[in-house]
Simulated assay, not measured.
Amino acid sequence: MRVVIAGGHGQIALRLEALLAGRGDEAVGLIRNPDHTADLQKRGATSVVLDLENSTVDQLADVLTDADAVVFAAGAGPGSGAARKDTVDRDAAILLADAAESAGVRRYVMVSAYGADNYDPDSTEVFQIYLRAKAQADADLRGRELDWTVVRPGSLTDDPGTGQVTIDESVPRGRITRDDVAALLLHILDNPCTASMQFEVVGGSTPIADALATFAREH
């Protein structure tokens, strides 16, 4: 399986790349800074230097040729201003969807944000603008004829993964390890039945595969 990951140097992306490469899949990370290439190579992934804020659909579609899936794991980062929440968290995600359609890649997995739809539309606070950007990107993706899955993780930690989660359309606020989010994304890529699903996820007591299967069965 060839998986192209936007935001390829992000902490979740690096973990997912290692999981993919470790079992023989091809992980391709899109990065803006060429100095990050070595970090991807250490995980067994290849890199493509491409600035999503300054790229065209055609440029990105060329990278997606022969891909089996794309994952949007990019983000402007906690130190960025409001403008980049729109240009990265929203517009870059939409650009990836446009390019996926152009390249004929149907599978799109979105790493979104917990509670994204609950933003304050009148707020000028950066975090609220971030949530709005995520919600708008998710809504755009849900309106497309792609095999999409939208994942909305709770507060992220660098603790070791447990392999156990809680998944539902809405879950109580909580924390989840980046290890477990990456493992969850791998399960999603392996399971076509997760297409057209959107859910929140935090740490829990149910193995990832079982939690996904139960949610898919009930929804």
Rank of each mutant, 00 (worst) to 15 (best):
S155W: 13
R152M: 06
R217W: 12
I167F: 05
T157M: 12
M197I: 06
D51L: 04
G203V: 00
H219T: 09
G79E: 12
L186E: 07
I31M: 07
G8Q: 07
A103K: 00
N118K: 14
A183P: 02
R173M: 13
G174P: 08
W148M: 03
K85F: 14
P78K: 15
P160E: 15
R175V: 07
A113L: 05
A209V: 05
A13W: 05
S47M: 08
G8K: 01
G115R: 06
L184M: 11
Y108H: 14
S170W: 10
D140Y: 12
P207S: 09
S155P: 05
S102F: 03
R173W: 15
A92F: 00
A183I: 01
D122P: 01
N54W: 04
Q11W: 09
R2D: 03
T206D: 07
A83G: 05
V57Y: 02
L186T: 04
W148E: 03
T65W: 11
G44F: 03
K85N: 13
R2W: 04
A211V: 02
A18M: 08
D159H: 12
F199D: 02
I5Q: 02
N191D: 15
Q128D: 14
D120W: 09
R178A: 12
E101Q: 10
R142A: 15
A6D: 05
I208M: 06
G8N: 03
I94S: 06
I167Y: 04
A13E: 13
G104W: 08
G24H: 07
L184C: 02
Q128Y: 14
V3Y: 01
R175G: 03
A137E: 02
I12C: 10
N191R: 12
L16E: 11
G104L: 05
S196H: 15
H219P: 01
S112R: 05
P34N: 12
D179F: 06
Q136A: 12
T157L: 13
D66L: 05
D158F: 07
V126D: 11
L95F: 08
T166D: 13
A92L: 02
K42C: 08
G163R: 04
G115K: 02
P160Q: 13
A74Q: 04
G8M: 05
D51V: 06
R107K: 12
V171C: 08
L96H: 00
G203Q: 06
I94N: 09
G203L: 00
